[in-house]
Design a protein around this nucleic acid. Structure first.
Length: 427
RNA sequence: GGAGAGAUGGCUGAGUGGCCGAAAGCGCGCCCCUGCUAAGGGUGUAUAGGGCAACCUAUCGAGGGUUCGAAUCCCUCUCUCUCCGCCA
């Protein structure tokens, strides 16, 4: 969430930054526009309450002393009975006001970093660089390639669970596992990330810490009768590993990689990518997470993005890096680089990784702090990025490695994970 | 799922109604002494909010209650540990 202190001292500057996200973010009726009055009211009530509490504490002390020495304190006690009633009433009101303000703060998105390009939608995103040479020939869609090879089975997925689920068979399943292993090995061995294995279910507090709640509950799968949710990304459990902790400054940066399944309801994307594995309700992902000192957030973002890129390079998949504009970055993000892989069947680059810095936004929400130079706790900056989305990577491997005879060439880096095989072909 | 025990500051751990934001130890910061040494002495050290200085307020797992007053008593919930059951 945004910084409470800065909210009062730098209101105008924050509003200017937020307004870059687009229409509606700071307009009348928005969380932002309602927050100011709630803050004022909340602080006024608290001030009044503190005066009363101070009086109660003072006289209570006197009563204690009088009683201790055997003196009569009934006059003070009668007086305090009334004060206590007032405190109780005002305390409830003040708490309500504070909760209301806190809740509205949770609905205000992060401030885009100054370096984020202007723009309202993806059309304004800025391509930073390209890697590799996209093939230009006609390539079938991955669902045709995969079904012909007998390694992708969308019908079975639909039967078992519904649309947007799939089944992998044989070398398809093995390819999924190989990609997972290759990615984890690269990040753990070469890029300095400690591997962690975490729950795929998280509670409300954890979901709030990274920003999925309270605003995006409709995008999540919620367990019947329980305040638990399936995670949409490993970012949630891995970042929250440190919730409510004060870390030693020397322990930073903390870098974790994790494989998890991810679950998304895809509520707002009816009709989009209905075929194939591009947009599934359940998919696998290897995620990179970093906790760093705030001043290192941007340089860490470049590092983390490079780590994700290294996977695409190892797999010889052409891609480009895009600097998302202010209108296209996510709710919690301060700055985001998307990696888009070349999909020859569609002749376009498709998102395969999203690498973001959140500044101290999540650090404040999840209450993750470290001790700075002066010994005072400071909210950490957090980052994360897909390294990579495995399903989409599998799609890219199939399409980019497809050969006219229907077989698929396996990138060299992956071969050792597939028993030394160089191609996937019909048995 | 059943029975019992517990949840206190960066950590360990006292504290059963007022003088407790909390003893002691560890760790850490600063200062001092000393040279025969894997040390000694002093002092400081929770978090958040407000004034932004003195100081005030809140917080002893969370929420509610009793009381003039609660870390301490009562209720509910969560989590941890032990035993039993069950299970991959």
């Amino acid at each position: 969430m945004i910084d409470r202190k800065a909210f009062r001292t730098d209101f105008d500057a924050m509003q200017t930054a937020l307004s870059r996200r687009g229409e509606g973010v700071v307009d009348a009726g928005s969380a932002w526009s309602r927050a100011k009055a709630l803050d004022v009211r909340q602080r006024e009530l608290k001030g009044e309450l503190e005066v009363l509490q101070s009086e109660r504490n003072r006289v209570s002390k006197v009563i204690g002393q009088k009683k201790g020495s055997g003196a009569d304190a009934s006059e003070e006690m009668a007086l305090m009975g009334e004060v206590s009633r007032q405190v109780k009433g005002l305390d409830a009101t003040a708490k309500e006001a504070e909760t209301e303000f806190s809740n509205i703060l949770l609905e205000i998105p992060n401030l885009p970093h100054d370096s984020v390009p202007d723009g309202s939608d993806e059309a304004a995103n800025v391509e930073l660089r390209k890697w590799g040479t996209p093939r230009e020939d006609e390539v079938p869609a991955h669902w045709d390639i995969g079904e012909a090879l007998g390694i992708l089975d969308f019908e079975a997925g639909a039967t078992l669970a519904g649309s947007r689920f799939s089944v992998l068979r044989g070398m398809g399943a093995r390819l999924e596992r190989a990609l997972m292993q290759l990615m984890l090995d690269m990040h753990a061995d070469k890029h300095g990330y400690e591997e962690v294995w975490v729950p795929a279910i998280a509670n409300r507090k954890t979901m709030t810490g990274t920003g999925q709640l309270p605003k995006f509950e409709d995008d999540l799968y919620k367990l019947e009768g329980e305040e638990l949710f399936l995670i949409p990304t490993a970012e949630v459990p891995v970042t929250n590993l440190y919730q409510d902790q004060i870390l030693d400054g020397a322990a930073l940066p903390i870098k974790h990689c994790a494989y998890t399944p991810c679950f998304r309801r895809e509520a707002g994307s009816a009709g989009r990518d209905v075929r194939g594995m591009i947009r599934q309700h359940q998919f696998d992902k290897v995620e990179l997470v970093q906790l760093v000192q705030p001043e290192h957030a941007l340089s860490a973002l470049h590092d983390l993005t490079a780590h994700a890129e290294a996977v695409l390079q190892a797999l010889e998949l052409p891609y480009r890096v895009v600097d998302l504009c202010a209108g296209d970055i996510g709710f919690s993000a301060q700055k985001t680089f998307d990696l888009e892989v070349w999909l020859p069947s569609q002749g376009i680059y498709r998102e395969i990784s999203s690498c973001s810095s959140f500044g101290q936004f999540q650090g404040r929400r999840a209450n993750i702090r470290f001790r700075g130079e002066d010994g005072k706790p400071v909210a950490v900056a957090t980052l994360n990025g897909s390294g990579l989305a495995i399903g989409r990577t599998l799609v890219a491997v199939l399409e980019n490695g497809w050969q006219a005879d229907g077989s698929v060439k396996i990138p060299v880096a992956l071969q050792s994970y597939l028993g030394g095989r160089e191609i996937i072909a019909n048995a």
